[in-house]
């Protein structure tokens, strides 16, 4: 077994080395990618997919994934900022959820202390209602919310998470008081979905992927996605196009530790640029159903700053963060 495995390793390494030699002569990077979550979750899957794409395409000589789970990423980012300062081979996967978690957990470490590298993927939020619900459009949901926010119950993920923020933004855009929304957090995707299917709540809000098969089977009615108006398709209508001005995506990105040199930052950004274009990464995006949302460099740094400001405002308005 060990011999067989060793053989496999060796041939895999050899293949990677050859591929690396062909595609890029600078494939000497030995990257470390931290997933600030337990194995199995979205951030971990992103880290392991990056590992696969980076080594198979020869962009990096190796890429080692470590898991630092806990508190929505608060523990991982603290470790990145405090222990990896100036390490030009270290990356950390993070996402929109971490922006909110750091605020609600009153984390002493902030994202401003990290070096933003690139945004990789995004998933839009979907709002659904049970198939027999009288509500058919975003407008009708907005009207119901305006009439009495208490009677419109929302099922979604944990308090302060992207689902909660999206529901608050929807209420605000609908002209209702976002502090009065009756948002009911559930612990797992399955539990929230069951409550919606069973007609226990008025509407459900979560990533589109959570609802996809139920929508296709006609068990849930899709009200719309939080996409920009021009990104809508016939079977994925945009909420914004229906007159409720809301746009939000649950994105995933990578950041580097603080204190790295401009050269190191450029090397990491180049590696990500190359990875995002590689056929290996594109293939992974397709099989996982992740939407490509690649943005790197200063453009991503700006997105990160904007998202932090907006999230802080929403979380303050629902009382989770004190201004």
């Amino acid at each position: 077994m060990t011999q067989f495995r060793r053989g496999l390793w060796r041939s895999a390494l050899a293949a990677a080395a050859v591929a690396g030699f062909v595609t890029s002569a600078a494939a000497q990077m030995e990257l470390k990618i931290m997933a600030p979550a337990a194995p199995g979750g979205g951030w971990d899957q992103t880290a392991r997919s990056m590992q696969q794409a980076l080594t198979q395409s020869g962009i990096a000589k190796s890429a080692q994934v470590t898991n630092v789970p806990g508190a929505g990423g608060s523990i991982g980012i603290a470790q990145l900022v405090n222990n990896s300062k100036g390490d030009g081979n270290q990356l950390m996967v993070m996402g929109y959820v971490m922006v909110g978690a750091l605020l609600t957990n009153k984390s002493p470490v902030t994202l401003d202390q990290t070096t933003p590298i690139a945004r990789l993927t995004a998933e839009y939020e979907a709002i659904v209602v049970p198939a027999d619900s009288p509500i058919k459009t975003a407008k009708e949901l907005a009207d119901a919310l305006k009439a009495d926010p208490a009677k419109v119950t929302w099922a979604g993920g944990s308090a302060g998470g992207v689902d909660h923020i999206a529901a608050a933004l929807f209420a605000k855009a609908a002209g209702a008081d976002p502090t009065k929304i009756n948002y009911i957090p559930f612990s797992g995707g399955g539990e929230a979905l069951a409550a919606i299917l069973g007609g226990k709540v008025t509407a459900g809000i979560s990533g589109y992927g959570e609802f996809e098969s139920q929508i296709k089977a006609g068990k849930l009615r899709l009200i719309g996605l939080t996409t920009p108006a021009d990104k809508a398709t016939a079977d994925k209508p945009s909420i914004k196009a229906q007159g409720v001005d809301i746009e939000i995506a649950n994105w995933r990105a990578v950041v580097a530790p603080p204190g790295i040199s401009a050269d190191q930052k450029k090397a990491l950004t180049d590696a990500m640029d190359k990875m995002a274009k590689s056929s290996e990464w594109q293939e992974i995006l397709k099989t996982k159903g992740w939407e490509d949302a690649y943005v790197s460099g200063d453009a991503f740094a700006k997105i990160l700053a904007d998202e932090q400001a907006r999230t802080k405002e929403v979380l303050t308005s629902v009382g989770l963060v004190k201004s």
């Binding site: 944990s158 909660h164 957090p185």
Partner: peptide, 14 residues
């Protein structure tokens, strides 16, 4: 889970 506030954690993120 329902209010997003921490209880009996004394600021220890773990």
């Amino acid at each position: 889970i329902l209010s997003g506030q921490s209880r009996l954690s004394f600021g220890v993120p773990e």
